[in-house]
Design a protein around this nucleic acid. Structure first.
Lengths: 205, 205
DNA sequence: AAAAAGAATTGAGTTCGTTCATTTTTGAAG
DNA sequence: CTTCAAAAATGAACGAACTCAATTCTTTTT
């Protein structure tokens, strides 16, 4: 089970991820070469390709870990939502956005999202896409939970609304990371305005 | 005005665009090398870079022409919208989606959208982003026009709703081009379901 | 314990996008 | 018609991601 080979493999994978994470964040994804990561992780460039399909896949592995955390912290919002619909959505979305730039730069996000569109087939790209799907479902879950508690009008297609809310926050996040000088406050204000309309519609009669 | 130099420049640009457009479509963006395009257009690789910032910028020039057409054909929908909100949105969005794969492959769209996120600064990337903004505004215009004609409830933030509708259709389109085997009918069905909710909200009292 | 099998690492080589010093072409001035 | 300057084209050279045949390291078998 924990033979030498297994341990070495796990260790190398960890070293590569740590080195890449630090280097990407400090110097930018584009500025870092595979050789830089390999050297920092004490492996050869060729070895790195035994662990990750390509440079982008390595980035998506890092970003996926971040999204896992976001998903986790979203759970508590769904479990104990504020009774106001607008506030609920704002809290969940705020949780998503707040986490987003803690470990990852805007450039890393841009590249990650670009890769997940352009090369959706690599292992970690698929994982990232799956996580995105889970986030979307979490928004749907929140709306259903609001309906269950009587905080939101029932008889409205929760999955469709949730999907729309998620697609919107995702697209707004893309606009946000596309502009290096756009502050988070602008993003929050814009999405609050958009969600206000959907929240109004969901408000119980 | 129409000196030899000007004419040659325009001609070379056109030849490059035509060659690239055909080759990308027939063999895929990734499979085509700059040299292939240069040869087909009867220029050197270096010359190509006098006309386009890089390979991706060339693709975005091609995609932008397509979006211009989409925008143009959207105008007539906004000018003469059906009186039902859901039908209006469906018609406009159907126009967008229908055009989308006439000249461009899914791979071209994937790559184009990826580049517009990752490298928003190049000339044609900026142009593509601007066109995207115009499309979003066109959706807002449609909703405002519906309100003006009494086909949609007034007193609702048309710009916010329009932005949400557009962000949603954009994100759904991304999902669509990410999966090579997803038929257009699936995309239309999904967005129709989502827009039904927003249309219901906009329905005049 | 030696040998065989096979898993993993290695780094030189390939490919392709991009750059840039040089050459060629164009249009203007004398 | 020549000369000159600016604009544009060229292709060899460069850099970085990625590949793969050869090698080294683990594990299993006898």
């Amino acid at each position: 089970m924990t033979g030498l080979r297994e341990r070495q493999k796990a260790d190398r994978s960890r070293r590569i991820l740590e080195a890449a994470s630090r280097l990407f964040r400090d110097h930018g994804y584009g500025a870092i070469r595979i050789d830089d990561i390999a050297q920092a992780a004490d492996v050869s460039a060729g070895t790195l390709y035994n662990y990750f399909a390509n440079k982008g896949d390595l980035l998506l592995a890092i970003v996926s870990m971040e999204v896992e955390e976001v998903l986790e912290s979203g759970k508590s919002v769904v479990a104990h939502p504020p009774s106001d619909v607008a506030e609920s959505l704002g809290t969940l979305i705020g949780t998503y956005y707040d986490h987003s730039l803690y470990y990852l730069s805007k450039e890393m996000w841009r590249t990650a999202m670009a890769i997940s569109i352009e090369a959706p087939g690599t292992p970690f790209s698929a994982r990232y896409t799956a996580l995105d799907g889970k986030l979307a479902r979490q928004v749907c879950d929140l709306i259903r939970e609001m309906q269950r508690r009587g905080y939101a009008r029932i008889g409205i297609d929760a999955d469709a609304v949730g999907q729309v809310v998620f697609n919107n926050l995702n697209q707004m996040f893309i606009e946000y990371v596309k502009q290096d000088d756009m502050p988070l406050s602008d993003l929050l204000r814009a999405t609050a305005r958009q969600n206000a309309i959907l929240a109004e519609m969901l408000r119980p009669v």
